[in-house]
Amino acid sequence: MYRKQWNKFRAKKINFLAAGFVALLLFTALFGPRLAPYSARHQVPGSVLTSPSSAHWFGTDSLGRDLFSRVIHGTRITVIMGVSATFIAAFLGLVQGLIAGYYGRMWDTVIMRFTDILLSIPGILLAITIIAVLGPGLNNVVIAIGIGSMPQFTRVVRGSVLAVKEEDYVTGARALGQNDFLIIVRHVLPNIMGPVIVLATLRVAAAVLNAAALSFVGLGAQPPTPEWGAMLNEARRYMRQAWWYTVFPGGALALTVLSINILGDSLRDILDPRTYY
């Protein structure tokens, strides 16, 4: 049954690279802290801002901490933030979109107006506003980004529900006397999961990026947390002396987002070839 999908995935070699990198990412997030040569806060005496060497692959930072270890420790934070923010967004968006799309009428009007309003505040600004209420910090960044990308899920879910609702098999289930809950669970949900999974993958990449951006401007993770965005913020002051301070956390961040995006793109080609966002 999935042979067609597998053939499509296989057609592009880059998909394997991306999948490999994401696997490495997940592995690092799970076991990295145990495998890293140093702890995130260990200051190696006498090696402040040393360039990459066999002892410190990524060099050391302004406090003499091993950057390689800090990047590895940061992976777990990045993965958890990206996934949990997206989970919040997908869950809330799914509930809202299902209600708006399936029940329509007043529900649709209220939920979609609310979504329009949220969408008219640029995502990062909305996140900043929410952080203003909740205060800076990692957890709050997750909530802020989650709520920030919720309206996108609402829209996609509602659109898909409206399309699926028109399918004859849903009308057929109603004609059989099936109740609304089971129609949603059996007939609607399974048939809208394609677009939702695709969007979720792409939103994980966006969440990783935005979380790092918020930490970079000082609203997210606070030093000495080994978060990549926060590390880049520290790196700004030492750009003249230490290029590696910027390049390695920045590279890790860019590669992470890139590989998740590539994976999301091919998932879309496979699961949901007609939409683009």
């Binding site: 880049l232 750009m239 290029w243 910027t246 920045g250 961040l253 860019a254 987002v257 890139l258 995006n261």
Partner: peptide, 22 residues
């Protein structure tokens, strides 16, 4: 284009700064 949507703009900015400015 894929790289473009994946490299965070502040990372790109920092790289530009490193190379062209510094």
């Amino acid at each position: 284009a894929m790289i473009g949507i994946s490299v965070p703009n502040f990372v790109l900015g920092m790289l530009l700064m490193l190379y062209f400015s510094l």
